[in-house]
Design a protein around this nucleic acid. Structure first.
Lengths: 189, 189
DNA sequence: TATGCCGGTAGACAACGTCAACCATCGTAG
DNA sequence: CTACGATGGTTGACGTTGTCTACCGGCATA
C-alpha cells in the first residue's frame, strides 16, 4: 500500500471517529506515520485530501451498484438491494456520507470527484431503468425518475445522519421511507 | 434592534456571502460593530451562534408554512406553494439552507433549534394532511407521508445547493422534481 | 559521476476559537 | 447617597490549525 493510500485511510478513519473537524493534517500525519506536512506531497490541500476520500467512497459505491446490477434477481429487488446498501453505508459512516455531498468547493479541488459521483449515479440509473422496462416503475424519463429517487433517498439518509429524523419522534427510518416510496411509485404510471 | 440581533444578522450575511467558513467571530464582530469577543456575551460559542441563525431561519420557515396554510386555495395548491417557498429559500441562500440540516452537534448547542425544526415540520405535516383529507394524496399515515415528502424535497434542494444536481447534466431542477413526485404520488393510494 | 526530481522533514506564520482579566454603565438594596 | 453586583463591552494572550518555505536524502538517468 502506497503512502498516499495510507494517508487517505487515516483521513477516512479520523472522519469516522470524530467527524470532519477531527481530520487535521497533523492527526492524519500522525495516524499514517508521517509528518504533519507529508500529505502536501500527495494532495494540494486539506480539501483535496477530503475530496480524495469522497472520490474513493463514490467509486466503491458505484462498484457495489454495478455488482448488485449483475445479480440474477428481479429488477425491483436489485434496486431495493442497492438502496439498502446506500442506506447502510450512510448509517454506518455518517460523516463520510455527508462528505460525499458537502460543499461544491470540494468538487472543484481538482481530481475526479465529480466524474466518480456522476458514474455512480449513472449506474444507479441503469437499475431504475431496468425496473421501468419490466413495468415495475412508472414510465417517465429514466434520468428524471432516477434523479428523483436518488434525491429522495439522499434526503432520507441525510436527515437520519444529521439526527433530524429519529424514530423516537414518531418518524420512520430511511428503510421504511424507501419502501413506502417505492410502493407508492409502483402504483403510478 | 438589539446587539444580539445585529450579531446574528452579521453571521447570516457572512454565511450567505462566503459560506460557513467565512463566519469567523472576528468577521462577525467587525460586521456588527463590536469586538471579536463580544459575541461570547450573547452566545456560548461559535456553534451556538450558528445554531441561533438556524433557529431563526427555521422559525421564519414555519411562519411561511403557516401563512400559506391560511390561504384560501386548494390544499394541493397550498402544499405546492409551501414547497416552492422551501425550494426558493434553498436556492437563494444555499449556505444557510445547508446549515439548517448540518451536524447534530449544532442541535445540542443548547437553544431551541430542535424545537423550531420540529415545529416547522409539524406545520408542513398539516399541509400534507389536508391534501390527504381532500383525497389528493394517498391515505397513508400523515406523519409518514409528510416525512417522506419532506426528506425527498430536502434531498432535491440539498443536491442542488451542493451543485451535484445541475441541469446542464441533463438532470432536472428541484421544482420539476417536486412536481413529478407529487404527480406520481397523487396517482397512488 | 553529476544532476534533478520525488517524497520526506522541520520550522515559521497568520488566522482562528477560546479563555482570562479588566472596565464602564446602571438599576437597586442598604 | 452610596456601595454593588450584573450586564455587556474591551484588550491581550494561548494553543491549534492550514499553509508556506527551506532543507535533505535517495535514486533514476544523462
Amino acid at each position: 500500500m502506497t503512502t498516499a493510500d495510507r494517508i487517505v485511510d487515516a483521513a477516512a478513519s479520523l472522519l469516522d471517529a470524530g467527524g470532519e473537524s477531527a481530520v487535521t493534517l497533523r492527526a492524519v500525519g500522525l495516524a499514517s506515520g508521517v509528518s504533519h506536512n507529508a500529505p502536501y506531497k500527495h494532495f494540494k490541500s486539506r480539501s483535496a485530501l477530503l475530496a480524495a476520500v469522497a472520490t474513493r467512497d463514490f467509486t466503491e459505491l458505484e462498484e457495489a451498484f454495478a455488482r448488485i446490477g449483475r445479480e440474477r434477481v428481479r429488477p425491483l429487488t436489485k434496486l431495493k438491494r442497492a438502496l439498502q446498501h446506500f442506506i447502510t453505508y450512510g448509517r454506518e459512516f455518517p460523516a463520510r456520507y455527508r462528505l460525499l455531498y458537502s460543499d461544491p468547493e470540494l468538487a472543484r479541488q481538482g481530481g475526479d470527484l465529480e466524474a466518480a459521483a456522476m458514474k455512480s449515479f449513472l449506474t444507479f440509473t441503469s437499475l431504475v431503468s431496468e425496473c421501468q422496462q419490466s413495468k415495475q416503475l412508472p414510465s417517465v424519463p429514466p434520468l428524471q425518475l432516477a434523479g428523483l429517487l436518488y434525491a429522495s433517498v439522499h434526503g432520507l439518509i441525510d436527515l437520519q445522519a444529521g439526527g433530524q429524523m429519529r424514530s423516537e419522534k414518531g418518524l420512520m427510518g430511511a428503510e421504511a421511507g424507501v419502501l413506502l416510496l417505492l410502493k407508492l411509485l409502483s402504483q403510478a404510471e
